[in-house]
Simulated assay, not measured.
Amino acid sequence: MWKFLQNIMGRSSTYYEELMKSRDTEAQISAQQLEESKKLISPLIKKAYSLEQAPAPTGLQKLYNNKGKSVPYYKSYYHPNHILHLYINLEQLEKHESNVQLILEERKPDVDLKEIPSLPMWESLIHLDLEKHRQLVKMASGQPWTLYKKTKQELVGNPIINQVMGYPQWIVNDIDYRKLENTTFLFQMELLDKERVLYFVFNSTSQNSEFYIQKW
Rank of each mutant, 00 (worst) to 15 (best):
S13G: 11
D112K: 01
K194V: 09
F200A: 08
Q61K: 14
N66D: 13
N99C: 10
G59A: 13
E181M: 06
N81R: 02
N182F: 14
T205I: 13
L130Y: 12
L130G: 02
L44E: 06
N158F: 12
K62I: 14
K152I: 04
L34N: 04
S98Q: 03
Y73D: 07
G68D: 12
R134P: 00
G166W: 02
T146M: 14
E154Y: 00
A140C: 13
E17W: 06
E35F: 07
P117I: 13
R134M: 12
L60T: 05
S118A: 10
K67T: 12
D110V: 03
N203Q: 08
Q214V: 10
Y167V: 02
V137N: 08
A48I: 03
E26G: 01
G142W: 14
G166C: 08
S22G: 15
F4P: 00
K39L: 11
L155D: 03
E52P: 00
Q188V: 04
W2P: 02
D129S: 07
L44T: 01
W2C: 13
V172A: 11
K46P: 02
L60Y: 04
V156S: 09
T184K: 12
G166N: 04
P109R: 06
L147M: 07
Y74R: 02
D24E: 09
G68A: 11
S98Y: 05
F185G: 05
S76K: 00
S30D: 06
N203H: 10
S141W: 11
L51D: 02
L192K: 10
K132Q: 09
K47N: 11
V156A: 12
R11H: 14
L5C: 07
Q214N: 12
Y16W: 07
E190A: 12
I29C: 07
N203C: 12
L136Y: 00
E195W: 03
L60E: 15
S209L: 06
R23C: 13
L186T: 04
N208C: 08
L86I: 15
D24L: 11
R178K: 15
V164P: 00
I160S: 12
Y177H: 11
E210Y: 02
E123V: 07
K132T: 04
Q53A: 13
Y87L: 02
T146D: 08
S76A: 10
P43A: 14
T58P: 01
K215W: 11
I8S: 12
M139F: 02
K179L: 15
S50L: 13
Q28R: 07
S13T: 15
N66A: 14
E18H: 07
P80A: 06
Q92T: 03
Q153Y: 14
I213L: 12
S118I: 03
K108G: 02
L147E: 09
S70Y: 03
N89Y: 03
T25A: 10
I83E: 05
Q188F: 05
Y64L: 15
M121Y: 10
V156Y: 08
A54K: 04
D174C: 10
G166L: 08
R11M: 11
S118F: 05
E154I: 00
A56K: 15
S42F: 01
H96R: 01
K75N: 11
E35S: 07
I83F: 05
E123P: 00
